Simulated assay, not measured.
Amino acid sequence: MEYIRVTKENIDKEHICCALSKNNDIQVSSKKAWLQERFDDGLVFLKSEERGKCFIEYIPVENAWNPIDAEGYMYIDCLWVSGSFKGHGYATDLLNACIEDSKSKGKKGICILSSQKKKPFLADPKFLKLKGFNVCDEADNGIQLWSLPFTEDALQPQYKECAKHPRIEEMGYVLYYTNQCPFNGKYVPVLEGVAKEQNVQFKTIHLQSKEEAQNAPTPITTYALFFDGEYLTNEQMNDKRFLKLLLKQA
């Protein structure tokens, strides 16, 4: 497998693996705009040469859009290999490339979000354990921070206090999200429309800077849905899934 690094110079012509629509689709344009602004912060986007979901996205933790304290670490935003790409060692290839690059930049280790059991849009804990990662922190909602330190004296990453106990004061449905996930460009407005039709209290909080994201009340900032103050899910939903959730919560 050959891999391509997406940069400012080639992002306009390269597809981004997690959103395979045309470049003028809102999912693609919002994600590419977000990436464009992150490259200067040290973000790396490495993907398969073939079209499909096979890529890794990582960034120095001080510039990550997550409330994490991990001085000297690299943070993996997303490692996604799916469909026909699974089972060929590509996830290992991508992870190893991240490790080698991080070491060459003098990083102390890498970290990533996961959970005790596999959850949608989070790294597979079985894969992480196999590759030598360990859980170094866990929020009340079960979202875990996993790390792979490069040296024995490297400090373990931790959540900031604001993210350890995911809870907010506002009632109704409140969605925190960023443009890091391309699906939000399409489906957040869909959920807003459904909530209006169903006369459901629904508020979106669009995190638009790393400072806002690093002080969010949730470890996951790409998509975090709360109801009456309690954290519900990080799984992006379409109209049918949201309607099902509304019925369940009623």
Rank of each mutant, 00 (worst) to 15 (best):
211 E>P: 00
100 E>F: 13
86 K>W: 02
136 C>Q: 05
229 G>N: 11
71 E>P: 07
224 A>V: 01
82 S>M: 10
163 A>Q: 03
179 N>V: 04
39 F>K: 03
70 A>F: 04
154 A>D: 00
127 F>W: 11
198 Q>C: 08
197 E>W: 01
83 G>D: 07
143 I>M: 12
176 Y>D: 12
28 V>H: 01
231 Y>H: 15
154 A>K: 00
35 L>Q: 09
156 Q>V: 11
185 G>V: 06
188 V>L: 01
189 P>E: 07
171 M>K: 15
16 I>N: 09
219 P>W: 00
55 F>S: 07
146 W>V: 02
134 N>K: 12
100 E>D: 13
190 V>E: 01
213 A>P: 01
6 V>K: 01
109 G>F: 02
83 G>C: 05
38 R>E: 11
82 S>L: 09
32 K>C: 04
172 G>S: 10
14 E>F: 12
124 D>P: 04
211 E>I: 10
64 A>C: 03
114 S>D: 03
97 A>P: 01
41 D>S: 12
100 E>R: 12
131 K>H: 15
243 L>P: 03
31 K>V: 01
55 F>G: 05
42 G>I: 06
56 I>T: 05
93 D>M: 02
71 E>C: 09
125 P>H: 01
55 F>E: 09
168 I>R: 00
199 N>T: 13
128 L>Y: 08
9 E>V: 12
85 F>N: 00
236 Q>M: 15
91 A>E: 02
142 G>F: 03
34 W>E: 08
156 Q>R: 10
65 W>S: 08
208 Q>Y: 05
204 T>E: 02
205 I>G: 07
